[in-house]
């Protein structure tokens, strides 16, 4: 089987399988889950058994059920953030490249200032202002993350703007929007695809991290970062409850990274072998 006209490597297949598996769980959570999302079905931190395959959590909810619904929430929020961040970042990045030096300066310097504060610290400040609801969380992360997308989109587009076919389109009197959408965007897409995977990983870990701090997705919704937080104390008794959601987060991130590595290796191939000593 071929994807994007290339044969995936074994590691890429592993990554694709992981992504497919978790997407399926996220979409089908209500059908697959053995119990209700918020139902208290047993004692606190009951050990794994036939009816609770991974045991129960801090207030006696089924861990496996929570993990399935958590996949929905955590992956869904991270994916929405990434898509939004790409829409904002790419639009502004192309605009900065096409729209003349004044616009470019204003946008680039604003992004420089935003990037000079650690993202986590920035996000904490915004969340302390607006409180943490899911829309606020998504918009905050999308805007902060779009600064990185902006930088890549701008630098890719700057190399394209000077090409002859863009000049030709300019001379035939096409507008700014046409130049961005029809001339530059299609050619800027290939390097942006692997970046999408990397930004997703970053946002995914970021959402999980914020929820872990109690500042991301709020209960009663199940989400992996929040589940680690709720069950954190269990570790002192040698109960592995907080490790399950943490393992799930790690597996998804590694899976996406494997696919990204493969896409990067396809893109890198035509430019010649690296200096090998």
């Amino acid at each position: 089987m071929r994807l994007f006209g290339h044969k995936p490597t074994t590691l890429a297949w592993v990554g694709l399988a992981i992504i497919g598996f978790f997407s399926l769980i996220a979409v089908l959570a209500p059908l697959l889950a053995p119990h209700e999302e918020g139902a208290v079905v047993s004692d606190t931190w009951a050990p794994a058994s036939g009816s609770f395959l991974l045991g129960t959590d801090n207030i006696g909810r089924d861990m496996l059920t929570r993990l399935m619904y958590g996949a929905r929430m955590t992956i869904g929020v991270a994916l929405t953030c990434t898509i939004l961040s790409f829409i904002i970042g790419t639009t502004l990045g192309l605009l900065a490249a096409v729209g003349g030096s004044l616009l470019d300066q204003v946008l680039s310097r604003s992004v420089d200032i935003m990037l000079s504060i650690p993202l986590l610290v920035f996000a904490l400040m915004i969340l302390s202002m607006f409180g943490s609801s899911i829309p606020t969380l998504i918009i905050t992360i999308a805007i902060l993350d779009s600064t990185r997308v902006f930088r890549l989109a701008r630098s890719v587009a700057l190399n394209l703007v000077v090409l002859d076919y863009v000049e030709a389109a300019r001379l035939r009197g096409e507008g700014l929007w046409w130049l961005m959408r029809r001339e530059i965007l299609p050619n800027a897409l290939p390097p942006m695809i692997s970046e999408f995977g990397l930004r997703f990983c970053f946002n995914f870990l970021f959402v999980a991290g914020l929820s872990f701090l109690g500042l991301g997705i709020q209960p009663p919704y199940a989400d992996w970062g929040g589940m680690v937080r709720e069950n954190g104390r269990a570790i002192a008794f040698g109960v592995s409850a907080p490790l399950w959601p943490a393992i799930a987060i790690s597996i998804v991130t590694i899976g996406v990274n494997l696919v990204v590595d493969w896409i990067l290796s396809i893109n890198a191939r035509p430019s010649g072998a690296s200096a090998e000593m």
Binding site: F212, V228, I235, A236, L243, A246, I249
Partner: peptide, 18 residues
């Protein structure tokens, strides 16, 4: 690629609890 709290909890489980 793993979240920082995962490493932290693993270390706690082995070096503090076990």
């Amino acid at each position: 690629s793993v979240p920082e709290f995962f490493i932290a909890y693993l270390l706690i489980l082995f070096f503090a609890v076990k």
